[in-house]
Amino acid sequence: MTPRGIADPDSFIRTETARLAPPLVPEITLHLATESLPIWQRTEEELGEIGLPPPFWAFAWAGGQALARYILDHPETVRGKRVLDFASGSGLVGIAAAKAGAAHVACADIDPFAHAAIALNAALNKADAVTVLTTDVVGTAGSWDVVLAGDIAYERDLAARVFAWLQALSARGADVWIGDPGRSYLPRDRLEKVADYAVPVSRELEDSEIKATSVWRPRR
Rank of each mutant, 00 (worst) to 15 (best):
T2R: 14
P3L: 06
P3M: 06
G5C: 06
A7W: 04
S11Y: 09
T17N: 11
P23W: 07
L24S: 13
I28S: 13
L30Q: 12
H31Y: 07
L32P: 10
L32C: 13
E35S: 07
L37Y: 13
I39C: 04
R42K: 12
E44H: 12
E46L: 07
E46S: 10
P54D: 10
P55D: 09
P55R: 07
F56H: 14
W57R: 07
L67D: 06
L67E: 03
E76R: 09
T77Q: 11
G80I: 00
A87G: 15
A98H: 05
K99S: 08
K99C: 04
G101A: 08
H104R: 11
A108S: 14
D111M: 02
D111G: 08
P112F: 12
H115S: 09
A117I: 01
I118Y: 14
N121H: 07
N121A: 07
A122I: 01
A123Q: 15
V138D: 11
W144P: 01
D145L: 02
A149F: 05
A149R: 04
G150H: 08
I152L: 08
Y154L: 00
A159S: 15
V162C: 10
F163H: 13
L166S: 14
A168C: 04
S170Y: 09
G173S: 11
D175S: 12
D175G: 10
G179V: 00
P181F: 09
S184W: 06
Y185C: 03
L186V: 06
D189I: 01
L191F: 15
A195L: 01
Y197Q: 03
A198L: 02
V199D: 12
V199K: 12
S202G: 11
E204N: 05
S208V: 00
I210G: 15
V215Q: 12
V215H: 14
W216D: 02
